[in-house]
Structure formats: C-alpha cells, structure tokens
Design a protein around this nucleic acid. Structure first.
Lengths: 235, 235
DNA sequence: CGGGAGATTGACTGATCTCAACCCGGGTGG
DNA sequence: CCACCCGGGTTGAGATCAGTCAATCTCCCG
C-alpha cells in the first residue's frame, strides 16, 4: 500500500499543520475521523449541493473546488474556490441552515469530512480553534464585501482583469508562466458575473493588447501591472 | 438626571440580553466598559471610516447606521444596515485588518465601544460567546453570498423590488404602514447598486402599477406579494 | 429672496446581453 | 476508416437595459 501524501505530509500532519485544525491539542486531533483516509472526487464531481443539509466541515486536502450558487434562471455564480487547506461548509454547519452553495471539483480532489458536533465542541472548548475559525469567516466576509462593491460598480472589463490577477495570486503560475488553474470560458463568466460571449470578446481584446496569451484554456499573464491598472484595484 | 432606556431596558440589561454579549457571565459583564454610558452620534455622523484602524466592537444601542464601501469612482455601495442590538466592526477587530467599510448614522444613534482585547479574551475563554459571534459572522456571510448572486444576475428592477421587501422585513412598518426606515433616492441606489435616476424611474413605475405609494422619502408597500414575485426571490 | 440639496424628467449613448450561425477537436458507433 | 455528434469556443448582428448629462422643479433654510 502506497503512502499517500498531502503537501508532502501524511494526512494527520497535513490536517494538524495546514488547516483550520492547526491549533487542536493532540487529544483533540486523536478524535478527528482521519484514520479512514480521504474521500476521492473525480473532476467535475459534486461534493454537496445548495439546499441540502450538510452539518459538517469538508477539509480539502488536494484538488481545487468551485463554490457557487445557482441563480433564479439557472445561471451559476461562483463565489470562491477552495484549495488544499481550505474548509468548505462551515457556514451552514455553524448557523444550522441548509447549504447556501453547491461545490464541484475543478481538479480531482481528496477531502476529509468532520462532523458538525465535533467542530462545535472544539469551538466551545478550544479558544484558539474558535479564534482561527472566526478569522477565516471574517476574512471571507471581507472578500465578499469587496466582491459586492466590484460587481455593483465596475464594468465587465475591469472585473475580468481583476479576476485574472486574483486567479494568479490565489493559484500561482506553473513553470511555463501560465495560470495554474484552468477554467472554461463559462466558468470565467460565472466568476465575473457576465455572459460567456463577453468573456471571450474581452479575452481576445486583452490578447490583442498583448496583456495576456491564450492557448485554449491556458492563460499566460504578460502584463500584470497593466491588468491591475485596468481593474482599478486598490491594492 | 433622566434614566436612559434602550429597548425599554437600562444599558447593562440591554447589552446582556439583546446583543452578541448575551452569553457573558456576570463577571465578564462587570468588566464591560458600560458605566460611562453610550456615545451619541447625530444624524449623518460618521462612526468610523474605511481604511482606519478600529480594533474594537461598536454595539448599536439605538438608531440606524448604514455600513458601506466607497468604490473607485467615489460611489458608495451600502453593504448592510446596523440597528439596535447589532455589532459593527467585528470583522476588522478579529482579522486585525483596517476597517473595510465606513459607517454613518441614518438615524441618530447611541453606541457602546468595546475594546478588541476584551472581545478577543471573551472569544478565547467563553465558548458560548465564541459560538454566538461565529454565528453572526456566518449569517452575514450567507447574506453576502446572496447579495453577490443577486447583483451579478438580476436586473435593477428585480433588485429594487427585493430591497424594498427586505427593508420592510428588517425595519418593519410604522403605524401608517410606511417603511420605518427613510432613505434618500441616492441611498436606495447605493443599496441596489445602480444610478439614482434609475431608482427614481423604477419607483414611479412601481407606483403606477399600484405596488407602492410614495410621499417624499416615505414609502408604503401596497402589494408585497407582487413585489416578491417581481424580485424573483427564493423565499 | 437667494442658495443648495435632493428629486424628477427627457434625450441620448453605449456597454452588454441575446440569438444564431459556425468552427473545432475528440470520442463513438457503424 | 469515416460520418456524426457534442461540448466548448468564436464571431457577428441586433436589441435593450441602464447609465450619463443636462435642464427643471421643489422644498427647506438662513
């Protein structure tokens, strides 16, 4: 049996060092359900769906997942991505509501599920854990507030430029300087909040202006500074 | 000296029953800085500004406050409102970042400031407090996710209808069945994420269609069901 | 009475969406 | 081996929602 590695560590080390569970005591770690290993999800698989009860944390150990809401007319709006070390589903687990988003893998993923009772116990008894989780929620809230303002006020062109930059910052580049994450035009549109055709047109415009290069779904950022300028970001 | 009342209670009772501090122990309540009473803010006054360091919770005891971000071109985007019992500023206090929003009173307000060190201590040592705060953050996060999807996908008309309904649900009606909260057309536009003129035109359209009545800034909802229909809400 | 803020209306513009046609590459079944 | 199909990806044309600009009005205040 091969030794599965996450970020170069075994599962317990990965969870206890690189996730929201990093400040658990040894004792608390012992009761985490990780002996069974991770659940595997193929590319495109759904992990959970909007409107269902999840009552637990999903810890991403490997892969990339898109987290999105489906709007009235069936169009998806991608809210954020989860990558190794991230938690999904904590919002509904904490509030006791049904999931407000659907999650599907962009790249095949390995995930550990931690039951809600367990995390609620940790929150109640481990101040460091509570604080870590609170920070995650609050950081996400800050991102969401920025997102709201951007979508409400910026043009599609500005938003697309911003999305490209943020994808770079979040997922970095591969050895050939392409964005590590590979998305369909439709998925890009579902982040930006626009029509697929608009994304296509603007991408070719950026390409014309030598800001990016495109090879199918692979995108290379040539002029980060100019894209930032276009996006009117305040960073 | 008159006895100031908040929701019909004295300050300590109000704070210990109707706010995020509802699960503090008597001892923890004793060290809350409430002997000095509240700080008063006139209509239109700023409580804190985006980009400044706040490091503490602002507990609203009275009044209504708008919480907004100022976009690149100087246009404001209202993120939410705070009313008696609500906390403001917890996001930056927890993450240690600068405030990501500005807060100004819509109606004159009474506010208690609680230093960050204190609330961090409560989070670390009082599991119930940690859980309550976490729930507030997570509920707000759910609202933000809805907001993102709405702004990205719905028309201005749909969003305005939704905003009117939510203002009713949040602030209720006065004895004459008007919305309790009174906003300028520009403020309405800054919630919906549109131009002032568009709000004006759509409001008169709703009025034509007998869905609302308008007397200056006072708005009466005549046909809640039809507005909900228009807004395409999933509630 | 003059000034200023907010509200209203009209005309114009234009960014973006929609619809429809077409392309391209990969996979499949005959 | 080839025809076909299907899911993206592209492109063009036309329609339109909604933003901008500018003029006007109303109300309130000093």
């Amino acid at each position: 049996m091969e030794k599965v590695q996450y970020n170069g560590q075994n599962l317990r080390d990965f969870i206890s060092k690189s996730t929201v569970f990093k400040h658990l005591t040894e004792k608390e770690l012992d009761i985490l359900p990780i002996e069974g290993g991770t659940d595997s999800y193929k590319r495109g698989a759904m992990i959970y769906e909007e409107g269902t009860r999840i009552n637990g944390f999903f810890i991403v150990c490997k892969g990339i997942i898109k987290i999105f809401k489906t709007g009235f007319d069936g169009k998806d709006q991608i809210i954020r991505f989860a990558k190794p070390g991230d938690v999904m589903g904590f919002r509904s687990t904490i509030t006791g509501e049904l999931a407000c988003t659907t999650t599907k893998t962009i790249e095949e993923a390995e995930i550990v599920y931690v039951p809600g009772e367990l995390v609620r116990k940790y929150v109640m008894t481990n101040g460091n854990f509570a604080m870590d989780l609170l920070q995650i929620a609050c950081l996400e809230l800050g991102d969401a507030n920025d997102y709201i303002t951007d979508i409400a006020q910026k043009t599609v062109r500005e938003r697309l430029a911003e999305v490209l930059i943020q994808l770079k910052w979040t997922f970095d580049l591969d050895r050939d300087n392409f964005l590590q994450i590979s998305l369909t035009r439709e998925e890009l549109a579902n982040i930006v909040g626009t029509a697929t055709e608009s994304v296509i047109r603007l991408l070719s415009e950026f390409k014309q202006d030598q800001l990016i290069e495109i090879f199918g779904r692979r995108i290379k950022i040539l002029e980060e500074a100019k894209l930032i300028k276009i996006s009117n970001m305040h960073y």
